[in-house]
Nucleic acid binder design. Structure first.
Lengths: 150, 150
DNA sequence: CCATATTGCTATGCCACATAGCAACTATAT
DNA sequence: ATATAGTTGCTATGTGGCATAGCAATATGG
């Protein structure tokens, strides 16, 4: 009955979805780091590799659009991944501005293990949610942001 | 069984909750800024004011704990809010290390309007979700992070 | 009394993100 | 053909949130 001191109305901080999104996202980012530091992959770099893996030959501009990034921030990350021998940049034949991105053989070989690690990470920070709840959460999150851009 | 590299199954980036959390949170942060730049409040500073408003006399260390922040990062923000005349720091009578935080009269007067603005912001970036879906989302998000710390 | 913990702070670095501006290139309109 | 405009990828730079390291003052418990 009596509320735990933070008892408040609908305007209470704890009732704000934005705040809880931020807290949950921070926890996820932290847990991601725990799982993927060994592989030296951060959420952004992993996301880039995952999309390139799913859509080989994708253009850098399209990758930016899919990940909601600015090319100014993408450029040094692409350089880093190329430096590490994980991606290749091939000049487009018809439009010489364009770079087509693909994973190297090394990265393609490593991706399944990295994807398994990420799945472990998700299973860990989503421990308290059933698989039905996870599916619901996924649907609601995508309702928020998908097609804000596309 | 064996997944081709282009496996768009459950390991696809779009199916990862962590990624979708990050995207949704980014959208929320962006929309928050649109609503609250006039008031010169960022998510963190608003959260601090909201908690102090809900628990006047709270200690800085407790505020850190509630918001999941390090005191190293809290300190300059408290200084900023004090500088702007929004909070007061009073020395604790029994423990002289402790500062008790409270809103100034000015801030207390402004809070209702700020809370209404934040509610407008939430209504905007959550417009695709019904109120039932919002309640579900809130519950699932809190399931992820609450009591990871407390 | 002394070792330890707590509170609040400064200094500093990392990372994600933003804007501004640029060079190369392509597409379009006249 | 040429001027204009848009696209692509990049560098430089600033900001904000978060992390660690280390410090001084204070409180606590053996």
């Amino acid at each position: 009955m009596d509320e735990p001191t933070t008892a408040l109305g609908e305007d209470a901080l704890d009732a704000q979805i934005g705040y809880n999104l931020r807290r949950a996202s921070a926890l996820a980012l932290n847990d991601f780091a725990v799982e993927m530091t060994e592989a030296s992959l951060r959420p952004v770099t992993y996301a880039m590799l995952a999309v390139i893996d799913e859509r080989p030959g994708i253009r850098a501009a399209e990758l930016c659009r899919l990940l909601g990034m600015k090319s100014a921030n993408m450029a040094p990350l692409l350089a880093e991944l190329e430096e590490r021998g994980l991606i290749e940049r091939d000049d487009h034949a018809e439009d010489r501005r364009v770079q087509e991105l693909s994973l190297t053989v090394v990265a393609r070989a490593a991706m399944p293990a990295w994807r398994r690690q990420v799945r472990r990470h998700e299973d860990r920070f989503l421990q308290r949610l059933t698989s039905v709840e996870r599916a619901t959460l996924l649907r609601l999150l995508r309702l928020i942001w998908v097609d804000e851009v596309e």
